[in-house]
Computed example of a mutant assay.
Amino acid sequence: MTQIIQYVLYAGLIISCISSLVFSFRSRRSLDGALRGLYAAKMNISMGSMLIVLALIQMFVFSGSSLRVVIGALFMVLGAFNIFAGIRNHSMFSRRKAE
């Protein structure tokens, strides 16, 4: 059972890293400001999910020392903030693009 959880967490980490990289390149290459903002927002969301997955890996896969739990909690808070900011920016730039 723990092997399955590890595989799922590592697969989520790889997927979120690749999507973060793709949206970062698209954001930097885009000429339109609205599209640049949308890609940057999607990059924030994928980076937030990457940080949360890293925190889950840190907390649940390895042995539980207090330092690992504290660092995992910090990654989780930072990841949640990135996801929140990405969703907020995505809604703002999608409205701007629609106009």
Rank of each mutant, 00 (worst) to 15 (best):
S30L: 05
Y7I: 15
R29S: 15
S63N: 12
A85N: 14
Y10F: 15
Q58K: 03
S63I: 08
S63P: 07
Q6N: 07
M59S: 06
G33P: 11
G12P: 03
C17F: 10
S20D: 05
F62M: 06
I57Y: 00
S20K: 00
S24F: 12
L51D: 09
G64K: 09
R95F: 10
I52W: 02
M1I: 02
G37R: 03
S16M: 06
V8W: 01
M43D: 14
I52L: 10
A73C: 04
R96T: 07
S30D: 13
N82W: 05
G72C: 03
I15T: 11
V61H: 04
Q6K: 13
S63H: 09
I45S: 03
A34C: 11
F93W: 11
N44W: 14
L9I: 11
Y39H: 14
I14E: 06
M1Q: 06
S46V: 08
A73Q: 07
R88M: 12
G48D: 10
A11C: 12
V61S: 08
V77P: 07
E99P: 04
L35M: 08
I52K: 04
F60W: 07
F60T: 10
V53C: 06
F81M: 11
V77K: 05
A80G: 10
M59K: 06
L38W: 03
S91Q: 12
N82H: 06
A11I: 12
S24G: 06
C17A: 13
L74Q: 02
K42H: 08
L78M: 13
Q6D: 05
S65W: 00
D32K: 08
L31Q: 14
S20W: 04
Y10L: 15
Q6C: 05
M1K: 10
D32F: 03
S65R: 00
M1W: 04
V61A: 03
I71C: 02
L78C: 08
L21N: 04
A73I: 10
Y39R: 01
I5P: 03
R68I: 02
M59H: 01
A55N: 08
Q3N: 11
A98P: 07
I87W: 01
V69S: 05
M59I: 13
V22I: 12
R96F: 09
I83G: 01
A40S: 15
V69P: 00
L78S: 12
Y39K: 01
S49T: 14
F93V: 09
I4N: 10
I14V: 12
S30N: 12
V53M: 07
R26H: 12
A34P: 01
F75V: 01
G72M: 04
R96D: 13
R28T: 14
V22Y: 09
F93Y: 14
L67N: 00
Y10W: 14
K42A: 15
C17V: 04
G48E: 12
L31E: 15
V61F: 04
L13N: 05
F84P: 00
M47P: 02
I4T: 11
I14L: 13
L78E: 11
